[in-house]
Amino acid sequence: MSLTQLCERLLNWTGLPVEVWVGLVVAVIIFLFMTVIVLAVVYLFRKFAGFIQLRLGPRYVGPRGVLQTVCDAVKLLAKEDIIPAEADKGIFIAAPLIVFLPAYLAYIVIPFGQPPHFQPKDLNLGILYVLAITSITVVGIITAGWASGSKWATIGGMRSGAQLISYEVPMSLAVLVPVLISGSLSMKDIAEMQGDRIWYWNAFNISYFGLAFIAFVIYMICALAETNQIPFDLPEAESELVAGYNVEYSGMRFAFFFLAEFSNLFVVCAIATTLFLGGWYAPLPFLPDDGFWSLLWFMLKTLTLVFIVLWIRSTYPRVRIDQLMEFAWKRLFPIALIDLGIVSLIVALR
């Protein structure tokens, strides 16, 4: 009996519609993809930060230490699960899930390559869906801080709440710029509007006088803040808050926070690639960008952005909380608003 026949037999036996099984398989694939990406990004980050800071980074486990993050993950899963006596048990357990689920669900609409093969599902409201889903993360972080019953965690959670809410505003305004330009909220449409010529990509398109590039920069700055990266890592400032909102978590629950954080980093860069850098398209028309090539181009662009973020992370000091808030409301917000206003004028007159 061949594999297809076996699958068919199994399908008939369960009696569920095929769509349910396809959905389940896609869900598992996304989860595996997410895990692999996070393990790879963490390894690369540690090597890269080591390079920048004149250290060696992981080197003993596997060739050049590539298996180090896998070992760390296994260690986390095997660790004892501790719930502090002061913690509110039910909420303490729920918080990592509230943080993890949005990070996981965000993958559904991202076109990692030429649709429909490399995009789990194209939604009409793709980018709005991502913004909406990821906005739930902050609730999980505040909840984690509060439920831990610890000062450090509570302060971390509060800082995070203020920060994420503030930076969501200029971020949404920056996202609206490519949406206006392409006239669609679907990730697929926005990428397809840009096409395979680098000078038509939103970030570099000169017919918008560099305004779309400004939106791109604003988006990336807000992305740093939204994923708690240095220089905006106040919620988990190690030297002053121990580790912030997740300080009381250990083992598998901590692993969920960790997974969500690095996964979010990857997702915001993937969204920036789709919105501003032409998605899965090659920069020039004669370069191949169909089939697996499209996946390659997408990952190349996204990982470049991830590297820039990690570069900033291993270079800059942390900002103060008042600087952080002032920067969001008094600098980024007006710039993003004016930028959006002028772009909508250009689009209306086009």
Binding site: L128, L131, S135, V139, I142, W146, I165
Partner: peptide, 18 residues
């Protein structure tokens, strides 16, 4: 549905918790 999640779940709940 999207706007409801973005504004109420993400925004209003956060402000209330805060």
């Amino acid at each position: 549905a999207g706007v409801q999640t973005l504004i109420y779940t993400g925004g209003v709940t956060t402000l209330i918790l805060f």
